[in-house]
Design a protein around this nucleic acid. Structure first.
Lengths: 344, 344
DNA sequence: GTTTAGCACTCTGAACTTTAGAGTGCTAAA
DNA sequence: TTTAGCACTCTAAAGTTCAGAGTGCTAAAC
């Protein structure tokens, strides 16, 4: 990306970014002088800052204001200048105590609480994609008749999820018939990921079974439906009100657009999915985001796993002016803890 | 409440309330003259309005502004002046189509969608308390072993709910032992409401059973826990961003306080519970609300039933300046539809 | 006794003006 | 190459002005 920056420019750029992140005010040359102990006058810094502006790392909101980092400036900071924060003991403790509590057996509970910790530790809004059931592999299926009309279908996956759903059956199946159906399905579906259980596959199985049992129309419609439903994943939010504390959201209209976004789960899902990478933490600054509703924001995401299988994404969404170092460490720690506590 | 209002005052009060509800601007005497076709001059109306202010039905934000209804004014309007809206066909259609859709088998789905309809039909924020499982009566319990370690506990209630939860058992029970436990529990618990299944009752049962089977410690802890969990009820929100459209919430600080409230489920639950009445729609204006966070708001609630058993509350929360007539009819219709579609 | 026309008075909110302060870029000297 | 000095620019906050809406009161009209 053009000429490499001199050490002095790097220091100045870092000073501007750090200052702006913490104060939200444009940073002037005098402020940089004060925070750098490098024995240069403000005039010199001014020249360097003018250069940095020409190169695209800084921008001026108006003549005679200080500078603020551009998107490129943040990018450079994140890639080259940032010192990764040490996580304070408080937060470390908060995370691990939140996740290790005895009562946290339900995965949904874990996710909800994680979202809360994440947002309170970063003062931003957190998004966590619930476990992606669809990436798990089919292990076993059971059907438990409840009363004359209803049965409970139970699905078990290799990642240890147990999903169940009540279905209505118009006609009653005898235990033997039920047994036949179940073992046939188990045999056919074993090892497939939920994603692979497509409508066409189901139709095929249906045709196959119909030759033997002609009573299953209803049951199949419902099975199909319940699978479809499980494929849609929930996104959990934490600290949505935190954006109100950010000075960049003092405009009611921006707030509205943001909160509106938060109400649209499918969109949030897409945003998280777009930005997730199997193995590392991803930082998307401003227009690096696909979704145009968050082009003024930064999204930082990580993924969590169960038994080494990536199963969901966690993220922090906030203004581009966010404390990158801190957010990244917090996410990293949370993901580590999640991986550990979900795999046990 | 003091002297009864003359017909003329009633008309003027109604005019002020109606006008203020739709414009959010203080209503002056001229405006009242224009909207009333009663051939009086603004001076006369002015005198009457001054009287109404003395009586406490109207207030002036400042000298030389129009009047706005006081809390008492709204109360009088709701109790004596309001003409109940006819529901437009559009909304009627929207409600019934939302609730009758084939896929809406899961009760949670129904609730979520109801919250949405409610908020979009009223332009306010809607709150719906999920079905109060705890008020249902225990009907039947089943335990289905899944693998070496885990079992699925299924609870069926008289209102047709089916709740289930996976539990870990340290030791495996033989089918016979399991059968014994289950039938003992069924016998003991049948007909009790979930509310009545207290910790002490569970402890008692536990002591009882221990004499016969000594393996159940784990199972019981978990059963107890799962019941406890079911007792906490979720509150579903719809249209939280609608408050941003209300001019009374143009202040970022008020917005923050409101959104903060929305994030505190237990508080919302308490608010709804405080205000619900078995049989009719309840209107709580301003300080009539217990909770101090909504002392500037009006909460209108209704309850829904399954098989004539009250099982949850739906509500609309907005500024005291809300379209009472419309909101009440919308809620009434929604509740009717809910009752019908949940009881089938 | 009501009702109303007329008028002086009040208050607000929007538009405009002023001003202090922060910061810049340039020039010329170190 | 660095820096002191200075003229210049822009903003945000505080102050000012002003039209408009609405009132309450008085005295006349019905």
């Amino acid at each position: 990306m053009g000429a490499p920056l001199s050490e002095r420019k790097r220091q100045i750029l870092r000073a501007v970014v750090v200052n702006y992140i913490s104060t939200a005010e444009p940073v002037g040359s005098r402020t940089v002088v004060r925070s750098q102990r490098m024995g240069l006058s403000s005039a010199t810094i001014r020249n360097e800052m003018a250069d940095l502006e020409d190169m695209g790392y800084l921008v001026q909101p108006h003549t005679s204001a200080g500078r603020i980092p551009s998107q490129l400036g943040y990018r450079y900071y994140v890639d080259n200048l940032m010192s990764s924060d040490e996580l304070s003991d408080d937060i470390e403790r908060e995370i691990s105590s939140t996740l290790s509590r005895e009562k946290m057996r339900e995965i949904e509970q874990i996710i909800v609480h994680s979202a809360r910790v994440l947002s309170s530790a970063t003062n931003q809004t957190s998004l966590i994609m619930g476990p992606q059931f669809k990436k798990s592999a089919f292990r076993q299926m059971r059907i438990l008749p409840l009363d004359e009309k209803r049965s409970l279908v139970v699905l078990i996956t290799d990642t240890g999820f147990i999903k169940n759903k009540v279905i209505d059956l118009q006609q009653q199946l005898s235990p033997t018939e039920l047994q036949q159906v179940v073992s046939y399905l188990n045999q056919k579906l074993y090892g497939l990921t939920i994603d692979q259980v497509t409508t066409s596959l189901i139709n095929e199985l249906k045709r196959d079974l119909f030759r033997r049992l002609e009573i299953l129309e209803q049951a199949f419609i419902l099975l199909e439906e319940s699978l479809k439903e499980e494929k849609q994943i929930r996104v959990f939010l934490g600290g949505t009100t935190n954006i109100l504390n950010q000075p960049e959201f003092k405009d009611v209209d921006k707030i509205r657009r943001m909160l509106n976004l938060f109400e649209q789960e499918p969109l949030l899902f897409k945003i998280l999915e777009d930005s997730s990478s199997e193995d590392d933490i991803v930082v998307r600054i401003g227009t690096e985001n696909e979704c145009k509703d968050i082009r003024e924001c930064t999204l930082i995401t990580g993924t969590y796993k169960i038994h080494d299988k990536t199963i969901g994404t966690v993220g922090i969404l906030g203004p581009t002016r966010m404390d990158y170092g801190r957010v990244i460490t917090v996410i990293r720690h949370l993901v580590d803890h999640l991986n550990e506590s979900l795999s046990s």
